[in-house]
């Protein structure tokens, strides 16, 4: 596993929740959006175990609906618990990313 995908693993749940929060998506759409954002290293299939886990933890729920192109697709929606979890992840990430950025990129001048 590359360093990038190892780093990504911990935060991917948050990324998936954030995409779904903007608008309900189905699996293929979700992978396209992650790709467009620039997370090209996520192998497309990776999202399905994540989607299953998020459903099991009731952070998202799936619903069969006709898609734009016609056939039925399972669309994912954020639940109330999902919104709270996303908020928490965002806060944690902000707290974590600032010192890590300073340390790795800013050269850690205050050390």
């Amino acid at each position: 596993m590359s360093i990038r995908s190892q780093l990504l693993k911990g935060i991917l749940d948050g990324c998936v929740l954030a995409v779904i929060e903007k608008e309900p998506v189905y699996g293929y759409e979700l992978s396209q959006k992650l790709f467009q954002i620039g997370l090209a290293d996520v192998s497309e299939g990776t999202i399905y175990p994540i989607l299953l886990r998020l459903q099991k933890n009731r952070l998202i729920r799936g619903e069969m609906q006709p898609s734009e192109s016609g056939p039925n697709r399972k669309y994912y929606f954020l639940t109330e618990e999902g919104k709270k979890a996303l908020q928490l992840i965002t806060e944690e990430w902000t707290q974590l990313s600032k010192p890590v950025n300073e340390l790795l990129i800013g050269g850690g001048s205050q050390l």
Binding site: G27, Y28, E44, G45, T46, P71, R73, K74
Partner: peptide
């Protein structure tokens, strides 16, 4: 069904099962 739908959509732009599921 979701995995099959995904594979079918990927197939249209020339992706294989290996590309998608590793």
């Amino acid at each position: 069904m979701e995995l099959l739908d995904h594979l079918l959509e990927g197939q249209q732009i020339g992706k294989t099962g290996k590309d998608i599921f590793g």
